[in-house]
Amino acid sequence: MSHTPETEAAPMVRFENVTKRFGDNQVCEDLTFTVAPGEFVTLIGPSGSGKTTILRLLMTLERVTSGLIEVGGEPLSHMPRGGRTVPADEKHLRRIRRRIGMVFQQFNLFPNMDVLRNITEAPVHVLGRDKEAAEAHAMELLGMVGLAEKAREHPSRLSGGQQQRVAIARALAMRPDVLLLDEVTSALDPELVAGVLGLLREIASTTDITFLCVTHEMGFAREVSDRVMMFDAGRVVEEGPPESLFGEPGHERTRSFLRAVLDRP
């Protein structure tokens, strides 16, 4: 476990009766849960169970069909206007979205920019930060991820593991309150996985960032999570501390999923 979150504080992330449908396909059904500031929550479950949709809703890449999402006590999908709640406009979405970073399974780096500019582009042009200060912070982050000497390289000259480290540094450059991780090791060669997971473990234990992580790396989930949520068919089947959920899962669906992914008898 990375650290103990502040249980008394207001939630950093709150889902209230959130449903998401794509046509007739209901991906998330009436989800209600909270994530505390500084908490590391991992979402596990079979493909198509709704895990990545949770992250996409928080990034406003998708809109809720019904229900409410709050980030840091402010509504994400909706906003107050004239004494009532209405769907959020683009200005509101952009403001709240600045509090959230995401690292994708595909690195999504800008191929025409060197590493340093990949990291400083959004802080300078989205947040309006001073270029020199943004570059100094970027170099600090590159030092943290072990790539300070690659600042002037282009992504095409980096390995997959190095590109994913740059993507993590780029997300951190926005100083997010919440960091979303979507299968961040799935595109990496097996020998590169441990280094990236070790880096994320260090970030989780040394910052107050709130994490929501979708991963198939059960060992990592067990080691770094404060809480694990098991999803199936758009619902939370079971949740709890990793030692109890992995050690003594209470739901048969969780047991069968873990048997499959951990190759248990």
Results as ranks from 00 to 15, higher is better:
21 R>H: 05
193 V>T: 14
131 K>S: 14
130 D>A: 11
11 P>D: 11
242 P>I: 02
214 V>L: 11
13 V>M: 08
94 R>D: 11
34 T>E: 15
129 R>C: 06
256 S>D: 13
196 V>A: 01
64 V>K: 10
73 G>C: 10
201 R>Q: 15
178 V>E: 03
229 M>I: 14
227 R>H: 09
228 V>Y: 06
112 N>L: 08
188 L>F: 10
247 G>S: 02
232 D>R: 13
11 P>E: 09
103 V>Y: 05
188 L>Q: 11
57 L>D: 02
132 E>D: 14
97 R>L: 00
199 L>P: 06
213 C>T: 10
235 R>V: 10
141 L>V: 05
75 P>W: 12
68 L>W: 11
234 G>V: 11
208 D>P: 01
185 T>S: 12
76 L>W: 04
264 R>D: 08
210 T>Y: 10
18 V>H: 03
241 P>W: 00
223 E>P: 01
59 M>T: 13
185 T>N: 08
163 Q>M: 11
207 T>D: 00
214 V>W: 11
161 G>C: 00
179 L>V: 02
18 V>T: 04
59 M>A: 15
119 I>S: 03
149 E>V: 01
173 A>E: 01
129 R>S: 06
235 R>S: 06
13 V>P: 04
118 N>T: 12
233 A>V: 07
56 R>F: 05
12 M>Q: 14
218 M>H: 08
43 L>E: 11
216 H>C: 11
9 A>H: 05
129 R>G: 13
29 E>M: 06
102 M>T: 04
5 P>H: 07
60 T>S: 13
69 I>V: 10
100 I>W: 03
118 N>L: 12
22 F>C: 01
159 S>Y: 06
42 T>I: 12
185 T>C: 08
32 T>M: 01
221 A>Y: 09
37 P>D: 02
210 T>D: 12
123 P>Y: 04
169 A>F: 02
191 E>F: 06
202 E>F: 06
233 A>C: 08
45 G>I: 10
51 K>V: 07
43 L>S: 12
81 R>M: 13
141 L>N: 08
207 T>F: 01
101 G>Q: 04
45 G>E: 10
141 L>G: 05
212 L>I: 15
170 R>D: 04
193 V>H: 07
166 V>C: 03
223 E>H: 13
21 R>S: 15
239 E>C: 06
124 V>Y: 04
260 A>V: 03
123 P>N: 06
92 H>D: 08
168 I>D: 00
120 T>S: 05
53 T>M: 12
197 L>P: 06
32 T>Q: 04
156 S>K: 15
79 M>F: 09
212 L>R: 08
74 E>C: 04
125 H>T: 14
